[in-house]
């Protein structure tokens, strides 16, 4: 059921489809670490159009601030954590 496990490194798809997308632009194309699996949820991208579709796994992913911003002014342990739908995540080989 879960495609990713805690501790795994993942890449957020660098994709810009139209519509109601819950993956913030500032995280697209960035790599992070899976912290936990939250379960399966309605896919907001589909539900927002009044449609039905399969539920999607949602993962809590931690992104180091220094990996997000080239000029980040703070300790390397600082991080942003976001909840990402599984179809936005790719394994890093």
């Amino acid at each position: 059921m879960t495609r990713f496990s805690a501790g795994e490194r993942v890449l957020v798809r660098d994709d810009y489809p139209p519509g109601h997308v819950r993956t913030p632009v500032y995280l697209r194309g960035k790599t992070g670490e899976v912290l936990r699996f939250f379960g399966e949820f309605d896919n907001a991208e589909v539900v927002s159009s009044g449609l039905k579709g399969p539920r999607k796994g949602v993962y809590k992913v931690r992104f180091r601030a220094v990996d997000l911003w080239d000029d980040y002014n703070g300790p390397a342990r600082d991080a942003v954590e976001a909840d990402i739908y599984e179809h936005w995540l790719e394994k890093i080989a």
């Binding site: 002014n73 300790p75 976001a82």
Partner: peptide, 27 residues
């Protein structure tokens, strides 16, 4: 985050990691 927190009067020492939770789904 550290600059914004400081504007709220909250200074986080450098040995304390800041975790910003972006509520992007149903959590």
């Amino acid at each position: 985050p550290r600059a914004v927190l400081a504007e709220f009067g909250t200074r986080v020492p450098d040995d304390v990691a800041v975790r910003v939770h972006d509520s992007t789904a149903d959590m």
